[in-house]
Structures are given as structure tokens and as C-alpha cells.
Design a protein around this nucleic acid. Structure first.
Length: 506
RNA sequence: GGUCCGUUCGUCUAACGGUUAGGACGCCAGGUUUUCAUCCUGGUAAUAGGGGUUCGAUUCCCCUACGGACUACCA
């Protein structure tokens, strides 16, 4: 079997959204699964839509996700360059070849003339006005002009495009790995522009030429390309090349209602649609990213992998290696998937709680560094073990653990009202005496001796525990009181008790 | 409008002619817990509709409905 070579070919018109990331992921998994190559090609043939920073964004996003490519922009390889704008001179010869063989032609119509043609046909009741067998005979092109006229226009520098000459009444078959055979009558197709007047090829020409030259074996791309796949098949035939195998992936849909997931949905429903945060260079508008929101790349990738693909077993937590082992195009579904932000959170919570305490401590260390705090790693590891299961997103780590690093500056008023009794100050003083006597400050020991002490004193369990919690953390949340006290240490626990005494007693 | 693609719990999906239609997220209830979470147990909930084919259709075929993509000198 031929070597598997697949590519991800985004255009640098903005940030990659999660649908694009998923396409890249499936390409990557497929390549790895078959010991093939995965390449990144930048399709920047539209100069007008170029957005500065987009290419860098794409590379950084793939990197963050752990989707590594073997050849491509920023990496080189046997088929460099991988940026289409740098391959410009390659495409023209193929367009010329098609013209020489009568499979394409020059067209001189201006945008205004094209618009007029469409208006004219619409007025006549034609449902789909297009540049095709029906209309090309009355347009300004090398089919209606004689050779001398055509040459003269070319020589005089008049701007032109090159259009494919679609054959009539030919059944075009697209063999899709996911959808099976898709048949289209060629007379439904239009004479698409292959080569633009600015000297750049269109996507249609460029992707066929590059996929052929780069020896791409499988084209795995979004379903939005399915309608133009017959054109691509035709181009391979015209050029005398063997087409790659196609797999058109179902779309990612918005969580509510219907339709393709878009940038707007994220803003509207409060979840990121981009892997990384993106600041639009023109408007300055900032769109949130999974990375900045506190998702782990592994969780993000796992969640994305299962959106449109399933292993056929009940396993749903997969490392990247496990995905590579298990992935197959046969198990990619046909229908679009609504994106579920809740499931994304669940995955992140799961991954976070499965992380080693040391790793969570590392995350904590970074958060603390940002606000100018620094603690012993052993202490951070302790804290991490206590709070990691209570955290959904990385920033929640701080919400759940701040009291370990900073003594409470205020106390939750509702909790205070509920548990603060006239006899509380006396109880707190008793507690100070109790803690001072403790020689073994381990969580286990503290838990036992504290409970025993409460009983011996005849206090209510909830009364003491909740008040102590309020004093230690400032509210009614967090891990077990004994664990907190143990981690905080004797000195700090007593200091907080004294502090509460002075601040809460009127 | 035209072309193409699609349709199983609210959501992601399994079941490739025979299952009490399975799992996960969410939600609800119970349990664990000194708090809040986690966790555990249970529950809720689906084959779009109509025709065929077949001993038997979620599964195969047709129609309808609904949804989506595409319809540029954009990718």
C-alpha cells in the first residue's frame, strides 16, 4: 500500500476554530495510525483576506494541542515551500497546460459584466445563474473570441482569468470514505475560475496541484467541501492524475438551535470556540480561548476527538496515544455534531482530578507567581491533593485554595450569622488551648482528636466544625476542616483563631 | 430557488435484520460528607412521519417532513 500522507490546509484568514482543530486532529490521528506523514500547508492564495498573525496562531494552536506535523510551514520537508503564495509560479503551468489541451479557457469578463449576467438570468427565471455551458457562449472569453483577438487582449495586458471548461452530461463520481459514492451530473457544475487575474490560483487549482505534488494519499476535510469535490475529481482527470481518497467530515454545529458553529456563538453562549485566545488585529476584539480559560490540552483534544468519532466501545477517556491506536475513518459519523460546552467541562474536571498532585502543584505555582506569591513545593503538593477534585477549570484552583496562602480578610456574613453565638468566643479560646496541646498535627490525628475533644466538651459537632471552618477559610467551602488545619500548621491555625476573636467579637 | 449531505434520549453516541434499544454528559432522587464539591447508587429520557421489502426492521428501498452545507476572480 502507498504511504499514507495527509495534510491540514487552513487559510490564514483568522484564528483556527475548534472545527478546524478537529479536522487537523483527525488528519493527525489517521497519519499516525498508519505510520504516515501529516503535513501543514498554508493556503494563502487570497491576498485580500490575509490576516497578520493568523499563521502563527495556527501553528501555536496545533502545538498546544499536541498535534505535531512532519512537514510544513515553519518546518520544511521534501516538498517545500508549503505556503501557497510561495509556490505561485508552479500553478500557472498547469493552467496553461489545461488551456493548451482545450480543458480550460481565458475569460475577460469584468466583475460588473458577471453581475449583469447573473441579473439577466435571474430576471429570465433561471434558478441558478452560473458561468456554464448555457452562458459561456455569450460571455467575453477565448471560446467566443477568435484566436487573434484573444492573443491581442492577452498581449495588451488586459486582465483575465482562466476558467475550467466543464464537460456536458458527464456523471462525476466522488468516492467518499465516509459517505460512499456521491454522483453529480457535470452540467450542474459551473466553469469555476482556476486562475485569478491577480496571478494567483484559486483554491480549486492550487489544492489539486499541491495535493498531487505533495503525494497526498487521503484528503480529510470538512463537509463544506463536498459540493466542490466533483470539480476536484474532474481536475484530477483533466490533469491525468490519480485522485487521492476523500473523506468529508461532518460539521460541528452550534449548541443551541441549528447551524454551523461560529465565532459569535462563543460570545453569545459563554464558551470559547477557539483553542487559543485571539485578538483581532483590526478591531482589537478579543475572543477567548480554551488555553486561557483554563482547559488542559489533553482534555480538550479528548473531547474534540469524540465529537464525530467513537471507538465503538464504551471507553471515552483517551490519551493521544490511545486515540492514535484506536482511530479509524470508518467510525466517523455522517451527521453533524452539536458542540456541548458542559461535556467539555466534564472532561477537564476529569483530567484535572486525575493529574498527579505534583502536576497540579505546578499549575498552582504559576497562578501564585502571577500575583506575587511563592510557597514551598511540598506545601503546594499538599494543597493540590486536597483541592484538585473540586476544580473544573485551572483558575478554579485559586478559588478553592486561596485560604491556604492568604488568611481570610473577611468572613462570609451569612455563615457568621448562622453559627456565631454568644458563647462562641469562649469556644474559640478553648479551641486555641486545644490546638496548642496537639503534638501530632497530621490530618488523621487531628480529625480524631478534634472529634473526641468536641464530644468531651459537649459541644455540637456542626457548631464547632462550621465555626472553625469560617475562622480558617472565611466561608463555608473547601476540604475537610482537619485536613485544612493540618496543612495550615499549628502556628497559623492559632493565629487565625486569635485573629477571628479580635475581629468578630463586637 | 437549485445541487449535495444528513436525521436514535435535551446533547455526544452504541446497536452494521432478531437487544427489556446500551453507554456518557446534563438533569432528578438517595447514599457518603462537619461545609461546598467530588465520589457511589438509582431514576428520567430516543429510533422524525408514511409506505414498502422481510418470518422479523433503528438497521435495506421509496416518498414526505425537518435540518445543514454549498451556490464568489473566498477558502
Amino acid at each position: 500500500m502507498k504511504e499514507v500522507r495527509v495534510r491540514f490546509a487552513p487559510s490564514p484568514t483568522g484564528p483556527l476554530h475548534i472545527g478546524g482543530v478537529r479536522t487537523a486532529l483527525y488528519n493527525y490521528l489517521f497519519a499516525r495510525r498508519h505510520n504516515g506523514k501529516f503535513l501543514l500547508r498554508i493556503e494563502d492564495t487570497d491576498q485580500a483576506r490575509f490576516v497578520p498573525g493568523a499563521e502563527e496562531y495556527i501553528i501555536e494552536a496545533l502545538n498546544w494541542c499536541g498535534i505535531h506535523y512532519d512537514e510544513g510551514v515553519g518546518k520544511d520537508g521534501p516538498h517545500a515551500p508549503y505556503r501557497q503564495s510561495e509556490r505561485q509560479e508552479i500553478y500557472k503551468q498547469y493552467a496553461d497546460q489545461l488551456i493548451a489541451e482545450g480543458k480550460a479557457y481565458y475569460a475577460f469578463d469584468t466583475p460588473e459584466e458577471l453581475e449583469q449576467m447573473r441579473e439577466r438570468l435571474k430576471a429570465k427565471g433561471v434558478a441558478t445563474p452560473q458561468y456554464d455551458a448555457f452562458t459561456r457562449g455569450e460571455m467575453l472569453n477565448s471560446l467566443t473570441l477568435n484566436a487573434a483577438e484573444t492573443q491581442q487582449r492577452l498581449d495588451s495586458g488586459e486582465s483575465y482569468v482562466i476558467r475550467i471548461l466543464i464537460p456536458e452530461n458527464e456523471e462525476v463520481v466522488v468516492n467518499d470514505l465516509i459517505r460512499g459514492e456521491v454522483l453529480v451530473d457535470s452540467s450542474r457544475l459551473d466553469d469555476k475560475v482556476l486562475f485569478k487575474s491577480d496571478g494567483m490560483p484559486t483554491y480549486h487549482l492550487a489544492n489539486i496541484v499541491d495535493d498531487h505534488l505533495m503525494e497526498i494519499s487521503h484528503v480529510i476535510r470538512g463537509e463544506e467541501w463536498l459540493p466542490s469535490a466533483p470539480l476536484h475529481v474532474l481536475l484530477y482527470k483533466y490533469l491525468g492524475w490519480e485522485p487521492p481518497l476523500f473523506a468529508h467530515l461532518p460539521l460541528l454545529l452550534k449548541p443551541d438551535g441549528n447551524g454551523k458553529l461560529s465565532k459569535r456563538d462563543g460570545d453569545r453562549l459563554g464558551f470559547p470556540v477557539f483553542p487559543l485566545q485571539w485578538a483581532d488585529p483590526k478591531t482589537g476584539e478579543v475572543s477567548s480561548g480554551y488555553r486561557e480559560s483554563g482547559y488542559l490540552p489533553d482534555a480538550f483534544v479528548n473531547m474534540l476527538a469524540l465529537l464525530g468519532w467513537n471507538p465503538g466501545t464504551e471507553q471515552e477517556v483517551f490519551s493521544m496515544d490511545e486515540l492514535v491506536e484506536t482511530f479509524s475513518l470508518e467510525r466517523v459519523g455522517k451527521s453533524g455534531s452539536k458542540f456541548d460546552p458542559e461535556k467539555a467541562k466534564w472532561f477537564n474536571h476529569h483530567y484535572l482530578s486525575q493529574l498527579a498532585d505534583e502536576e497540579v502543584a505546578g499549575l498552582l505555582k504559576k497562578i501564585l507567581a502571577e500575583i506575587g506569591l511563592s510557597f514551598e513545593m511540598s506545601f503546594l503538593i499538599n494543597v493540590a491533593g486536597l483541592v484538585k477534585e473540586r476544580v473544573v477549570l485551572i483558575p478554579d484552583l485559586w478559588e478553592q485554595s486561596h485560604f491556604f496562602f492568604v488568611a481570610p480578610e473577611s468572613y462570609d456574613e451569612k455563615v457568621r450569622q448562622k453559627f456565631w453565638k454568644p458563647e462562641t468566643p469562649a469556644m474559640l479560646n478553648d479551641l486555641i488551648a486545644f490546638f496548642e496541646k496537639q503534638t501530632d498535627f497530621s490530618s488523621e490525628n487531628l480529625d480524631g482528636s478534634l472529634k473526641a475533644w468536641i464530644q468531651s466538651k459537649g459541644f455540637g459537632m456542626g457548631q464547632v466544625m462550621n465555626t472553625l471552618r469560617l475562622v480558617l477559610v472565611g466561608g463555608s467551602f473547601g476540604p475537610g476542616v482537619a485536613a485544612i488545619a493540618s496543612t495550615l500548621g499549628k502556628k497559623e491555625v492559632i493565629a487565625r483563631l486569635q485573629n477571628a476573636l479580635s475581629r468578630l467579637v463586637e
